[in-house]
Design a protein around this nucleic acid. Structure first.
Length: 867
RNA sequence: GGGCGGUUAGCUCAGUUGGUAGAGCACCGGCUUUACACGCCGGGUGUCGCAGGUUCGAGUCCUGCACCGCCCACCA
């Protein structure tokens, strides 16, 4: 029997308004969600929270998926696990960099020393001020702190049961320290390395990008059919008598970068040419014709031009066929100056080549293409007209122009040699839903190279290395200088390596800092280590790692999820978490992903204020793991109605609690048995991360409880049939109320806490999750679930008949119920309640199926329904 | 090109191991029932994407196809 362990205090007219503010204040005051670090790993349930990007704004999709995590966290907390639920802010990376530049009117110049007295002007100046990287980071911290306050306010209002003393930022000290230390350890073990190699390059951001950040976009282009002269004239094979071989390309501007032609080894058309040279049009460079199985005889003319570099296939061919490099593009995407005729640029006519090439210098790829086409037409080397096509082109996901491939020095983390281990980890991980595993497998199987983690940007975690500068002023990349781990985090643009003085920076026989920063994912791939205090607090780390849950969206499986698995494999040789719960997107009614602009039109806060946090959470809870869910204010209204119903039903249950005693009435016992079944079902579903199925059953059961059980038990509860049956009803009502409040608590934290406070001390969110066994015990001997089920069935039939006959609920009636022996035996146990609820006099009749007939009676009903 | 998911009432979605199609919303009718009009009672609505197959029986299993969405792919 639940105790009203404090005097019951019921509001006259309970309402949902203001519950968010009221309870957030109490939860904060009482430390309701504070993590108790004295608990051991087995008792802990730890969550690797996704840090939202702070430079944008939170949208409805965030509210959606973060609610899912919170439901799971609250459930686990009530199950007795100590929940480690931190919150991170992703303020590291390009988006913040751009925002800070515009907001303060500054530009980062990593060559400048730190200026501790620097203050940005009131208004951003027209001419941006150059500041050092540490100054820049200070400004980023200053601005993001403001944004993070707004985010935290929204999360609190939504009711996330986060421990707000445990926040971290991806640009914060802890994250930098962890990122740098992990990097240094990888470097020491040879799992991180530096390489000068062709790299995917964004010409606008002027930085390398990783495979995971690519996306294909359909772009208009054209096949250009171009002839190459066969060196040494016509001879043999298919090409007997031909002076030329024709290729097709979408990038004719790269002819000056051409290093070979390639065809499939089995392609009989081109076999005679293998081993021979051809001459590039316009530039007169002799290049070999090579054979390689990647060449597709079906594509174009079946023979392709290899340039350094037009696409990733070029890189493969270049590497596997050991071809030279002829680089023509600069980091900004424009053609560079170069002199023809020298080493590597041999041509049979240097003057002609120079004359053609000089017309391309400083042009973008698109403009150079038009110019080359013009030149090819003049020279007669373009065969026919270009054929327009649309084809997929690789872009940086945040970029506006196609990526180029440019040779540069970059840091990599080894991934290719761990591919099998990573696939195995993917199998070990428990995915929710299961099928999301395929995305991971797909990605790992498709990995094309090691992970490029360096970015030629400023606002990120710096690489904690310097290079010795030789006597002749060159950097000695082969022997990087690294700090001791205890010095971390460091910024090599201002900090000085051990054994050197600041005056030796960039001097002969001195040192130079690595200018690059790490990719955002190189830091956020370490969120379990950052949040769990890997280096700062090993004791804490041992209590929370490996974590239980990684919640995230499916679009970043290839980035965040994959890279976190990789880092944990490299660092700890184990999975970073046991479960991954993948949430879907919020889509608008046209099945399109909700755009940011749309999300901004309906701000999350406005939704929460209109429908209440519990209402919005209810809608979110209807989105199963992995399923895209339609934005639907209608569901939020339904959720709000449910919350209101909980207020009112609870008020009814608590309005009169005396006399209160053991549960003895068959209907009451049966109701509790059914509740026990619900608890069993909901618990199983929640353990399986199927919070949606659990909620829908809890909700269905609760509405039945309100509309059927409460109506059936009302007269008895008011004392119409004596104190004993009233005390059973009161006892059962309180048990049921307590159970429903706990079942709803993970979903509707505000209304359940409010009602809990009317009659119980402490927080419902720290109360134990209901146990089916306890309910069965209260129901006791002789309880049978079907009494409740049959009572609802018969009650429904009588209501329907009365409604169809146009009667009022209170119209007295004579009811004949026919049914088989079992049914009649069952209904006799609840005859009193069915009769009183319908003002009916009931007669039973042996029959086959349940059949109910209703006739109006002359006398006031009810009295004759006494047993 | 490869993979994954979806296609069930006007809308949003459930349909557990194959056994006569469900819920909510919306809509319509009725109800001042002392917890609740943010309520209560009742009502109609479906060739379960298409075509085959297995089975006594298929929304559910198998095969193929179509459409929608997403992921991946070396894109000359």
């Amino acid at each position: 029997m639940p105790d009203t362990d404090q005097p019951i205090s019921l509001p006259e007219k309970p309402a949902l308004e203001g519950l968010e503010a009221k309870w957030n204040a109490r939860w904060e005051e009482n430390g309701t969600y504070r993590f108790d670090r004295s608990r051991t790993r087995l008792d802990v349930y730890s969550v690797d929270t996704p840090p939202p990007t702070v430079s944008g704004s939170l949208h409805i999709g965030h509210v959606f998926s973060f609610t899912h995590t919170d439901i799971v966290a609250r459930f686990q907390r009530m199950r007795g696990r100590e929940v480690f639920y931190p919150m991170g802010w992703d303020d590291n990376g390009l988006p913040t960099e751009r925002r800070v530049q515009n907001y303060y009117g500054v530009r980062c110049d990593p060559s400048l020393p730190y200026d501790s007295s620097f203050q940005p002007p009131e208004k951003p100046p027209k001419q941006p001020i150059s500041v050092s990287r540490p100054n820049f980071i200070e400004l980023c911290n200053r601005l993001t702190v403001e944004d993070e306050k707004v985010f935290e306010q929204l999360w609190r209002y939504l009711g996330l049961s986060v421990d707000w003393t445990r926040t971290y930022a991806t640009i914060g000290r802890a994250a930098q320290r962890v990122s740098q230390a992990s990097f240094l350890r990888l470097l020491k073990r040879g799992a991180a390395y530096q390489l000068e190699a062709p790299t995917l390059w964004d010409i606008d951001f002027r930085t390398a990008v990783a495979q995971a950040e690519l996306e294909d976009r359909e772009q208009p282009g054209a096949y250009h059919r171009i002839r190459f002269e066969i060196a040494g004239g016509p001879e043999g094979g298919h090409y007997a008598g031909d002076r030329f071989v024709e290729i097709e390309t979408t990038r004719p501007e790269l002819i000056p970068a051409c290093v070979a032609l390639v065809a499939h080894p089995d392609d009989h058309r081109y076999r005679p040419l293998f081993g021979r040279d051809v001459v590039t049009p316009l530039f007169g460079v002799s290049v070999p014709v090579k054979a390689h199985p990647l060449a597709d005889p079906e594509k174009g003319s079946g023979i392709a031009m290899i340039c350094t570099f037009g696409d990733l296939t070029d890189v493969t061919w270049w590497r596997e066929l050991s071809l030279p490099v002829r680089a023509v593009l600069q980091p900004n995407g424009a053609f560079r100056h170069l002199t023809w005729g020298g080493a590597g640029w041999e041509t049979r006519d240097a003057a002609a080549a120079q004359g053609a090439y000089d017309q391309l210098v400083n042009l973008s790829a698109a403009k150079a293409r038009a110019k080359v086409v013009e030149l090819l037409q003049q020279s007669g080397d373009l065969i026919g007209e270009p054929k327009p096509i649309t084809h997929p082109v690789k872009f940086y996901e945040k970029g506006d122009r196609p990526l180029e491939i440019i040779t540069s020095r970059q840091w990599f983390i080894k991934t290719m040699e761990f591919r099998d281990a990573l696939l195995e980890r993917g199998r070990e991980l428990q995915w929710h839903p299961e099928y999301m595993r395929h995305r991971y497998d797909n990605w790992v199987n498709g990995l094309a190279g090691d992970w490029c983690i360096s970015r030629q940007r400023f606002f990120g975690v710096p690489f904690p290395v310097w290079y010795p500068v030789t006597a002749d002023g060159n950097r000695d990349y082969a022997h990087p200088l690294v700090p001791d781990e205890s010095r971390l985090p460091i910024d090599p643009s201002t900090d000085v390596p051990d054994g050197y003085t600041a005056s030796q920076r960039d001097q002969p026989n001195g040192f130079a800092g690595d200018p690059d920063v790490m990719d955002t994912w190189a830091t956020s791939s370490l969120t379990p280590q950052v949040a769990g205090g890997w280096l700062e607090d090993p004791d804490l780390f041992s209590r929370v790692f490996p974590m239980d849950l990684r919640p995230q969206a499916h679009d970043i499986i290839r980035t965040w999820l994959f890279s976190t698995v990789l880092r944990a494999e490299l660092e700890h040789q184990q999975l970073p978490w046991a479960h991954a719960a993948i949430s879907g997107f919020v889509v608008d009614p046209d099945r399109k992903k909700m755009s940011k602009s749309k999300g901004n039109v309906i701000t999350p806060m406005a939704l929460l204020e209109e429908h209440g946090s519990d209402g919005v959470r209810y809608w979110a809870a209807n989105g199963r793991p992995g399923a895209d869910t339609t934005f639907d204010p209608g569901q939020m209204k339904v959720g709000r109605r449910l919350a209101t119903k909980i207020l009112n039903a609870s008020r009814f249950a608590l309005l009169q609690t005396e006399p209160k005693g053991d549960v003895t009435a068959p209907l009451d016992k049966a109701m509790l048995l059914n509740l026990a079944r619900l608890v069993t079902f909901a618990t199983r579903k929640l353990e399986e991360y199927d919070y949606t199925s659990a909620l829908s059953e809890i909700e269905k059961s609760f509405w039945n409880f309100c509309d059927d059980y409460i109506e059936l038990v009302k007269a008895r509860r008011y004392g119409d049939f004596g104190a004993d049956s009233a005390s059973s009803a009161n006892g059962a009502l309180l048990v049921a109320l307590e159970t429903y409040l706990r079942l709803f608590a993970p979903y509707l934290p505000f209304v359940t806490e409010e009602v809990w406070s009317w009659w119980r001390s402490g927080s419902v969110h720290r109360a134990p999750w209901p146990a089916a066994g306890a309910l069965e015990q209260i129901a006791g001997e002789g309880a049978e679930a079907r009494f409740y089920v049959d009572a609802q069935l018969a009650n429904g039939e009588i209501r329907r008949e009365k409604s169809l006959q146009g009667m009022k609920i209170k119209t007295p009636v004579n009811v004949t119920i026919a049914g088989d022996t079992d049914m009649l035996n069952s209904l006799r146990m609840v005859q009193l309640e069915i009769g009183s609820a319908n003002t009916a006099t009931i007669v039973f009749q042996q029959g086959e199926a349940l059949q109910v007939s209703v006739l109006p009676s002359e006398e006031p009903g009810g009295s004759e329904s006494h047993p």
